[in-house]
Design a protein around this nucleic acid. Sequence first.
DNA 1: CTTTGTGCAAACGATTTGCAGGATG
DNA 2: CATCCTGCAAATCGTTTGCACAAAG
Lengths: 140, 140
Amino acid sequence: MSKQSVDAVVQALKSRALRVTPQRYAVYANLLSRTDHPTVEQLLNDLNRDFPISSQATVYSSLQALREAGLVREVLLEEGVSRYDANVDPHHHFRCQQCGAIEDVAWDTFQALDLSRLRPGLQPQAYEVTVYGVCDRCHN
Amino acid sequence: MSKQSVDAVVQALKSRALRVTPQRYAVYANLLSRTDHPTVEQLLNDLNRDFPISSQATVYSSLQALREAGLVREVLLEEGVSRYDANVDPHHHFRCQQCGAIEDVAWDTFQALDLSRLRPGLQPQAYEVTVYGVCDRCHN
DNA sequence: CTTTGTGCAAACGATTTGCAGGATG
DNA sequence: CATCCTGCAAATCGTTTGCACAAAG
């Protein structure tokens, strides 16, 4: 990872008044480097691959801090486990019904939805689309 | 509940080769009668309000049977708990960020999305929209 | 009667929490 | 140095499972 992106991670943490600790840094940098929306278990395995960086409890607390700071979001597309995503810009998801893989779908893939067609009384603030299907790895 | 709808529940269960037991009947009839996507806990409280009808383990097993039979679906919009919905026709959801209430949004509320705009390789089969916002009970 | 469902309690797995020591700003 | 973070282990909470008994077809 380049010095520039290292700084970017530190900047991001500092700008949200988060103390920069090795564990927090590692969690956020790792999430930024991937787009597969890992579970806590996958995150831990990856972080501690070479040598122990963080405990499980700390990953949970780091994720909570990052989430409250708006740097990370939780993705609920599977029963039982939460997945995490450092892409906090609005976007959609594709979920493979075969292997469970989750993939981002760019926001402008679909035309904007007309939220004014919701029943009166509801005040929409955001929306996202989840597409279910089969990914190429599972189909071929 | 009218005799006719009673029969409808029995028919639905029988047509899916599910044995008609009081517990299963109660779970499915209860889900059919509401649109708030209850959790197992809420379902249990409601079922056993007057006198005990079903144990927790049986509600779980009934839901699994109903789900496998295609009469009920699981809705994941909240961390930690699964919610259940007897509306298995395609539809969208609105989730109140304040109180957590979940409400169905009719399928034809939104124009159809052009799934051919997904990247090549993905084979979409279905999609749904989740709208986040504030419901009238929370806003007023 | 044969098969499947129910209820209880124990088992599980993901996440949370309490607390003592350690690192950050 | 005052505050906040980390790691460990125990606690929690939703859900699943094993098993003996009961009910459904």
